[in-house]
Design a protein around this nucleic acid. Structure first.
Lengths: 213, 213
DNA sequence: GCCCGCTTCCGGAAAGACACTTACGCAGCC
DNA sequence: GGCTGCGTAAGTGTCTTTCCGGAAGCGGGC
């Protein structure tokens, strides 16, 4: 069952020893909400290991997964001193956190974050193209290619996300995602050993569908 | 008529004196493509004055305006040493450009870019929510509020974008954008003096529509 | 007056919403 | 150990809604 970080490791605001340190490593289980949209933004965080998703909510409950993060990616960004997104682990994860004002004192850290921000901004630009202009089938194909870089050809991908989470990432409903998986299967582009184990069968057709991504 | 920067000020690659300098200010007219998606990424740019849009294209010509930039915003980001987006001015603009490797030598510049990247990344997160989860009417309401910060209450907004450009920004078609404007007008939320002059009449209703943005 | 961009109208396609079925994992039990 | 039942997640069928897509009409600015 999914639970909040507050319930198992304690919220940052309730553990002064955690807040006071400049750098802190953190092990968290899967499906833990590491921080909440709107909370005061005291720290900035880096994924060391594992996968994290950033989400935003509309007042009526509609959700968007705005970013998927892996090792090296940075989160905990602030707008008006409050976190702009919630962050939830998809897998067990290791996270490093820094005090926000450490950025001024640590030029090496700032330089690393700058490079990473540039990469993440480019990924967000691609994602805007996906959300704004691609069909359901194209979005799912793009998503699978993104999780399956050219390196791991022939390998089987273990999805750490439910259909609902994928849908919230791609701006679709879970039914549409499910239908898209079935359609890709029917066309012979992918094979699903189980619902969460995908193998890309025809990579070039997938690339064509995803807009040569 | 819209034209490419190459045709009026010369491409950076053809003006060595421009390329060699570390910092260069640039005046460009409206509707000029300052840089092209895929070109080798030699410089990083800041908007000093005016408005710039970043666009991405799919092979079949579908376009997404991925970001709208104003004074202070940064563009010219690279993925694999190539520009990830094209950049086109919406208005006459002043642009400062830096050599990419100046980032290592100039910590003040790096610090400024870091802060700006953080802000732009947050805006992209919001935009993902808009593109993934909002209806056409909500998207247009959000768009107008974003261009009309609380400060300029009662003022009239002069749109620098065509319906097609707004549609490409919001992931809609120009007809749907036009319909949304008409619906907002019909409901009394906005007044259109002309097609490109908007006045927000009922700000609280607009906010509710846009998800309290 | 003409032209470009905007608006409006219509039919059609894609995705959403809802309901139901199926598959799987787990805990309790015989 | 294996059977059984429950709970969650995924797949599918049907209908509805929203948005797209072409076309025609409108209107302001040069």
């Amino acid at each position: 069952m999914r639970q909040n970080i507050d319930e198992r490791t304690g919220s940052p605001t309730r553990q002064p020893s955690f807040v006071e340190s400049h750098v802190q490593n953190l092990r968290v289980a899967a499906h833990v909400t590491v921080l909440h949209e709107g909370d005061p933004a005291r720290r900035i965080m880096e994924v060391v290991e594992g996968a994290v998703m950033l989400t935003k909510l509309l007042p009526d409950g509609r959700r968007q997964v705005v970013e998927l993060l892996g090792p090296g990616d940075v989160f905990g960004l602030a707008h008006d001193e409050a976190y702009a997104c919630s962050a939830e682990t998809l897998t067990p994860a290791t996270i490093t956190t820094h005090e926000r004002n450490a950025l001024e004192r640590d030029p090496a850290l700032a330089a690393r974050l700058l490079r990473r921000f540039e990469a993440q901004l480019c990924v967000m630009h691609s994602h805007a193209l996906v959300l704004g202009r691609m069909s359901a089938l194209e979005r799912v194909a793009f998503f699978l290619l993104r999780l399956m870089p050219d390196g791991m050809v022939g390998g089987t991908l273990r999805l750490a996300m439910t259909r609902q989470e994928i849908a919230d990432f791609l701006g679709l409903t879970l039914e549409t995602v499910s239908r898209a998986f079935s359609e890709l299967k029917r066309r012979g582009l992918v094979v699903l050993q189980r619902a969460d184990e995908v193998r890309i069968q025809d990579r070039s057709s997938m690339r064509r569908l995803a807009g040569a991504a």
